[in-house]
Design a protein around this nucleic acid. Structure first.
Length: 190
DNA sequence: TAGCTGATTGACT
DNA sequence: GTCAATCAGCTAA
């Protein structure tokens, strides 16, 4: 069973932490691919100047709506990034999913990525991740609690340490420590 | 309508 | 370390 809607109805920072170890499942026709989430970043509302809620008005209704929905966008003209909308209606926030440890459908991922299926970089990085799972702009607004793109709770109890640090790759609000990852996991991006 | 920006990646020096 | 690829959605006019 996917994570329930109420899981997402909390501040983005808490959702980002708790998403670590959960499993992202992507169903493309007959092809199933899944990976354990090993790296996330939290984005807040308009007060967070790096958040798309602050400078992408086209996505406003999405950010301000109920959580548990996918926000997929294209950046640098070529890469899709996958986010989960967090927070309650009227309280914008989202979590960028940055890296996965592949667990299912490795061959399909490797085919889409054009690298070996045992590469630690198979789904490491926001752009690589979406390409490995076949996620495109059509998945924007997809419901994460049911359907072809879902997130399942961890299948085993927590057995890892969570590390936190500043977000990477952004040009604004660099100082906030809103990036979380599983310490020591080789699938975390650089 | 033209011009700009960006939560990136991979190839190259 | 630098740099190009490439586009949605904004801005200015």
């Amino acid at each position: 069973m996917p994570l329930p809607r109420r899981f997402y109805a909390r501040p983005a920072r808490a959702v980002a932490r708790d998403l670590l170890g959960c499993v992202l499942v992507s169903r493309r026709g007959r092809t199933l691919a899944a990976g354990r989430i090993v790296e996330t970043e939290a984005y807040l509302g308009p007060e967070d100047r790096a958040s798309h809620a602050a400078f992408r008005p086209g996505s406003r209704d999405l950010f301000y709506g109920a959580g548990g929905v996918a926000y997929v966008y294209l950046n640098y003209g070529m890469h899709c990034c996958l986010n989960a909308i967090a927070g309650r209606r009227g309280r914008p926030g989202c979590v960028l999913i940055r890296a996965l440890e592949p667990v299912l459908g490795l061959r399909a991922m490797a085919r889409r990525r054009g690298v070996a299926s045992d590469s630690p970089r198979l789904a490491s990085g926001p752009g690589n991740l979406t390409r490995a799972l076949g996620i495109t702009l059509r998945d924007n607004r997809a419901d994460l609690t049911a359907g072809r793109l879902t997130i399942e709770p961890p299948d085993a109890p927590r057995d890892f340490r969570i590390a936190a640090g500043p977000r990477v790759g952004i040009t604004r609000a660099r100082t906030l420590r809103l990036r979380f990852w599983i310490a020591g996991n080789p699938h975390v991006s650089r």
